[in-house]
Amino acid sequence: MLAFHSDAHSLLLPPGHRFPQSKYRLLREHFEAHPGLLRMEAAAPATEGELALAHTPDYVEAVLLGRLTAAQQREIGFPWSPSMAARSVHSVGASIMAARAALAEGVAANMAGGTHHAYADKGSGYCVFNDVAVAARLMQAEWHRARRQLLRVLVIDLDVHQGNGTAAIFRDDDSVFTFSMHGAKNFPFRKEPSDLDVELPDGCADDEYLAALDTALERLWQLPPPGLAFYLAGADPHEGDRLGRLKLTTAGLLERDRRVLTALRERRIPVALSMAGGYGRDLASTVACQVNTLNEAARQWALWRAQD
């Protein structure tokens, strides 16, 4: 299975900053040490024109040229630097490449991404550009140009935080269905309405979570079938997460991934994954959960290819 990485571009963060940027490098290094499951490639950067499919030109220019205000940088949570801008455009590029690969092969992944708090005109919550929104709009444009058909897109966002930026970007777009299942009392405290929101109480554990997921998925399969799905497989619902407030076990998270990816494969809906959030008290636990996600994705990719 193809997986695209962008961790060569680091953030210049002050000591003690709680964003765990090293997890992306650790995830890549795990699969380098265990070759065979993933075909890993470095991501190319998204272009300014591609970013403008989901973001305002003024905001894109402010990020690329270092013109973000102090207030904008505080809302994002990162100080601006050339490497911050480079990391952001390469992470979007990874989702673009994963989406193209998914349309060709069934399943592919961005080994970072899932920056769902970014709006059209601003970043927020450690999210600079909205990689899924850019990739979705670009795939729709390329699909229409090649086939003269509409590509319907489904966003399955299972990060523990609501995908407010994604919901806002696609609010009036009937061609993209946004589904977010998240902690009711967690960030962002002002939520944007997705097409389907499922809010979970603090302390929600495996059985309650998976039952809610099953109910939501049944609603999704009653919709007109999408031609492409994006799956934000956040590790932050895990019981060991510093920011998550839910209580899923490692086995519960893996079962979540299995149910989502199996349902998509059985319906022959191509899926591009992104790793989204994960802030474990023990960072190794976060990396282990995301290793499980990619292992399961690779297994589903093999089953998809066997059915061709």
Results as ranks from 00 to 15, higher is better:
L158M: 08
R152M: 12
H161S: 06
S180N: 01
Q73A: 11
R299L: 06
D206Q: 01
R299A: 11
N295I: 15
Y119R: 13
K23N: 04
A8P: 03
P45C: 14
G77V: 11
A263N: 10
T250C: 09
S22H: 15
R100P: 00
D131W: 00
N130F: 06
C289V: 13
E48D: 05
D241Y: 08
G234V: 03
H34M: 03
L303D: 04
W221C: 15
L246W: 02
A98G: 03
A43W: 08
A263I: 04
L151I: 06
T286M: 08
N130M: 07
S81F: 08
A136P: 03
N292M: 15
V134G: 01
M111D: 01
G106M: 04
E208I: 07
A102P: 07
P193E: 14
L27K: 11
Q300N: 07
D197N: 01
V271N: 03
A288N: 03
P193R: 07
L53I: 00
T166N: 09
R219N: 10
A168D: 14
T115H: 12
L294A: 02
D173H: 01
W301L: 07
K185N: 13
K122D: 12
L12H: 09
G114S: 15
D195E: 06
V176F: 01
R281F: 13
K247N: 11
S180K: 02
A288P: 00
A276P: 07
H5W: 11
S274T: 13
R147I: 06
N295F: 05
G183Y: 13
M139W: 14
A263V: 08
R268G: 02
L243Y: 10
Y231E: 05
G280L: 06
P224S: 06
N186E: 10
R171L: 09
G49Y: 11
A71F: 14
G234T: 01
E50I: 01
G77T: 11
V198I: 09
A133L: 00
P45M: 14
L253H: 14
G165S: 10
A112M: 15
R259P: 00
P20A: 00
A306Y: 04
R87N: 05
A98P: 00
Q72L: 05
P188T: 03
A118C: 04
R265G: 07
G183C: 14
L264V: 09
G278R: 10
I169M: 03
L243S: 13
F170D: 08
Y119P: 03
A229L: 03
R245M: 14
D58I: 12
